Simulated assay, not measured.
Amino acid sequence: MNNAMTFEFDHLFILTDIGASEANRLSCFGLVEGGSRIHAGQGTANRCFFFHNAMLELLWIHDPEEAQSEPIRQTRLWERSTKQVVMYQNKQPQIQQFLSGFSEL
């Protein structure tokens, strides 16, 4: 009897700065950007890249009040987004060096 649990990858979200300028670099790399929308009531907005069976979602806080509201609090989006900004600021030179390699493609 096989008790192995299987799962299917659906989508990956990455917290970004407002507007997700990283999407422009992905487009230059050859990925095709799909939809973009505001998640009303959640306090976030996104830019997406769709694949055959998955999606890459670049996500940012659009409305801090909504992102910190009671119904959304359990997702910890606000806490994760503010931590992400601090991490990004601390690692910005390494990130810029990494991204510069894509400009050569």
Rank of each mutant, 00 (worst) to 15 (best):
M5T: 07
Q96T: 13
L26T: 08
V32D: 13
P64L: 10
G101P: 01
N53F: 14
N90V: 07
C48P: 01
A67S: 07
D17T: 10
A23F: 03
Q97T: 14
N24Q: 14
N53S: 15
S27A: 13
F98V: 09
Q74T: 08
N90I: 09
N24Y: 11
T16P: 03
E33K: 15
Q96E: 15
Q89W: 03
L26H: 12
Q42H: 08
D17E: 06
F50S: 13
L59H: 00
A4K: 14
G41R: 02
F7V: 05
Q92W: 08
G43Q: 01
E65V: 08
G43L: 01
G43S: 02
M5V: 10
Q97W: 14
M1K: 10
Q96S: 13
R80M: 09
G101A: 10
L31H: 09
N46M: 01
I38N: 00
L12T: 02
A4S: 11
L59C: 04
I18S: 06
L58G: 03
L15N: 01
G30R: 06
A20Q: 03
D63W: 00
N3M: 07
H62L: 01
S81L: 05
D63Y: 01
W60Q: 01
A23V: 10
Q68R: 15
W78F: 12
I14Q: 02
T75A: 07
N2E: 13
Q89H: 11
L56G: 04
M55G: 05
S21D: 15
S27L: 09
R37E: 03
N3A: 09
H11T: 01
G30C: 07
M1V: 12
P93G: 07
F29C: 09
E66P: 14
I38K: 00
A23H: 04
Q92S: 11
G30I: 03
E104G: 07
E33H: 09
E57N: 13
I61N: 04
R25G: 08
P71K: 10
R47D: 01
G19K: 10
M55C: 15
W78I: 03
I18W: 05
E57M: 04
T16W: 00
D63P: 13
W60S: 04
Q68L: 04
D63R: 01
E65L: 04
Q74K: 13
T82P: 03
R37I: 01
S69G: 04
W60P: 00
Q89K: 14
E8I: 07
F13N: 10
D17I: 05
E70Y: 10
A40M: 04
G19C: 02
D10P: 00
S21K: 12
M87Y: 12
N90C: 08
I61T: 05
Q84I: 02
M87N: 12
